[in-house]
Simulated scan of single mutants.
Amino acid sequence: MTTTTTGAAAEDSSHDADGPAEAPSEHRLVAQATGQYIARLQPRYLKDNPAAVSELARLRRGAGRRAHQVQDLWGVGGLEELARLLADRPDFHRREDAEEAVFLASTLWALHQQSGRDHGMHQRKQTLGGAVRTLMRLDNGPGADEERDSPLRTRLVRVGTAESVESVAVRLREIVLLLRGAQVPLDYARLACQLYRWQSRPGRAGVQREWGREFHLAAAPRARATAKDTEAQDGGDAIDLSLSMDEEYGGYASGE
């Protein structure tokens, strides 16, 4: 496993041939703030920098809490990066949702990274569903993909059915603790983007589908083929196995 220390989302390069670049979408700014914050802190922590070690210890106390709820964490957890990115965006109306998403993702990363100095636990393109699949294989062996009643799968389903920020935070925290024990990384900038979109009712269904696709597309080839055959026999919609991971944060349902 290689350590990835760059997590900032790239600026949106979409632009007209003769015009200025388009402003990044809201969910991209949330991912960018989270990625920039962790990319700055993670390599310092891996080198045992005292200030970084101290900051992660503070961040862990906020894991599963709301932004600004822990006074000791005011100004910590990627919120200053977010504020800078939003400084020239008076049209950004869901600032509180953005703060919650950045703060939750940053504090969960700090919990995930605890005591780990060999690898960064924030790695690009390591999806939540894919991380759970990896954990299933590590815990139960190659055939784990075919276990429909796996407790790990159940934990992911519980994240997908959460109805409040508090409940999704608690359920994600449970998964992160398991990922930490197995040293399975996660893309926290992508997760922050998903958490931002999840907080809006129109965007929630898209995020839930995205988590499901991440899980199914990370299955072993034999398990995917079995699932596809079963869905075809049942008359259901088979998963499109040709789908590749969307490199832009937001995945398959990146629209607001």
Rank of each mutant, 00 (worst) to 15 (best):
T3N: 01
T5C: 04
G7W: 08
A8D: 12
A9E: 15
A9W: 13
D12P: 03
D12N: 02
S14T: 15
H15Q: 15
A21K: 14
A23F: 04
P24L: 01
H27V: 09
V30T: 12
V30H: 10
A33P: 01
Y37S: 01
I38C: 05
A39T: 08
R40W: 03
Q42N: 14
K47G: 06
K47V: 08
K47A: 15
D48F: 01
A52W: 00
V53D: 06
E55W: 03
L56I: 08
L59Y: 00
R60Q: 03
R61Q: 13
G62P: 06
A63G: 10
G64E: 12
G64P: 07
R66I: 05
R66Y: 14
A67W: 08
H68N: 13
W74E: 08
G75Y: 05
G78S: 05
L79R: 02
E80Y: 07
E80R: 15
E81Y: 10
A83I: 04
L85M: 09
D88L: 14
R94D: 09
R94E: 12
E96C: 04
E96A: 15
D97F: 08
E99S: 09
E100L: 14
F103Y: 13
S106Y: 02
T107F: 02
L108N: 04
W109A: 04
L111E: 14
L111D: 13
H112P: 03
Q114I: 04
R117H: 15
D118W: 02
H119K: 12
H122P: 03
K125I: 03
T127E: 06
L128I: 04
G130N: 02
G130Q: 00
G130R: 01
V132C: 09
T134W: 01
L135F: 00
L138R: 02
N140T: 07
G141S: 12
P142T: 08
G143F: 12
G143V: 10
R148Y: 09
R148G: 09
S150L: 11
R155C: 05
R155T: 07
V159A: 07
V165P: 01
E166G: 09
S167Y: 00
A169V: 10
L172R: 03
L172V: 07
R173D: 11
R173T: 08
E174C: 05
L178R: 08
A182V: 07
V184T: 04
P185I: 14
L191N: 02
L191A: 00
Q194D: 15
L195N: 09
L195S: 09
L195D: 11
W198Y: 02
W198S: 04
Q199T: 10
R204C: 04
Q208C: 02
Q208R: 08
R209S: 09
G212D: 06
R213W: 10
F215E: 07
F215Y: 06
F215K: 07
H216D: 11
A219C: 08
A220L: 15
P221F: 00
R222Q: 12
R222E: 13
R222F: 10
R224C: 06
T226I: 13
A227Y: 05
A227S: 11
D237E: 14
A238W: 04
A238L: 07
I239C: 11
D240K: 02
L241N: 06
L243S: 03
M245T: 11
M245D: 08
Y249V: 13
Y249M: 07
G250F: 03
A253D: 09
A253M: 03
S254T: 12
G255E: 12
E256D: 15
